[in-house]
Design a protein around this nucleic acid. Sequence first.
DNA 1: GTAATATGTCACAAAAATGTGATATTTAAT
DNA 2: ATTAAATATCACATTTTTGTGACATATTAC
Lengths: 185, 185
Amino acid sequence: MPDTKTKIIAAAVKCFLNNGSENLEKVAQVAGVSRRTLHRYFKNRQDLMACCKKEMLDNCNKAMTEAYESDKDPVKKVRNMLFAAIEQGIHYAFIKRSYERSNFSELERQKEFESDDVKAKWLKIIAELREEQRVTNALTIPWIFNLFGAIIETAIYAVEAGDVARNDCKKFAWISFKGAIGLKE
Amino acid sequence: MPDTKTKIIAAAVKCFLNNGSENLEKVAQVAGVSRRTLHRYFKNRQDLMACCKKEMLDNCNKAMTEAYESDKDPVKKVRNMLFAAIEQGIHYAFIKRSYERSNFSELERQKEFESDDVKAKWLKIIAELREEQRVTNALTIPWIFNLFGAIIETAIYAVEAGDVARNDCKKFAWISFKGAIGLKE
DNA sequence: GTAATATGTCACAAAAATGTGATATTTAAT
DNA sequence: ATTAAATATCACATTTTTGTGACATATTAC
């Protein structure tokens, strides 16, 4: 069974996903822990949030890096990265959301995605496929990047909401992404 | 110039989009109005939120119904609905977000989307296109519906974040959606 | 069984957010 | 210019949320 700190982070990610300022009583409750205990592990709300971000980012980067390295074929690399992100579920959604939030609000800076090289690796593959005419050039790379994230999020939410069976969602996501960017396999 | 109530709703939509519990002081400030005035127009936070939802839903439904009726060809109907949603910008994003949020949290019920017939109209077109084999049948209709929303949201956010030029985003969105569902025009 | 560690319970102070009354000031209409 | 309506400012009570101390209870390791 997971240790307390992990349980709290998991609960916080779940709570903060759709409401970045859900109160800590609720988080503690979801974690099955008293609020006092939560405060023993995390100095304050900010601290908890920072830990969530770091933890989720590490998880996602690890999973996607492994996916990247799981195959030599660039298309399969991308496909496996998509699958890995979907499997991360709300871990991925949480990161994506906090990244989006920081775009609008002045304060935070989003070095996070930029700093690691998962994005860079992904971009390189897409740029190459585009170079080789295996991907439409009617779309820009930034658009394709955003689209990739959006399709992952769609898959995650569709499963959570019960709209699409867990088994189907990865398949659907890959079909959709391939079609959307005109990828020839 | 817009009247005060409208200004406040616009500000609230902007504030609540990424943080459903942004404080009312901030909302008032963004609206360029005192908090006291905000409270004169809205009984309380709940009331304001309800007004935002209603207002945004009306805007979006109106725009998308007009788009639906703007052409006889079903494919152009869908395309124009996509464009209309993108033009709605954060109006659409706000509705989509509150709809998503209510999926996870127990309390709220999302009769909103269901009750109006915009969704029904959209679904009918897609079902027919699928019947006629003009859309892949490797994807389910609910998936396609979610994807449609996700691509719209991507376009809106891409513009807000400055990733994609305002002019391009509608074009990109349509290309992507067509490709994703294998639509033959 | 005992000591050490972790957690729960309760109380409480401080801070933040909410909602409202009273009154002054601004704005618009005539 | 005068009046009416809308808004701002300020003060205040209430509620909600946060963070911490003190102590009890439970869990674990030995």
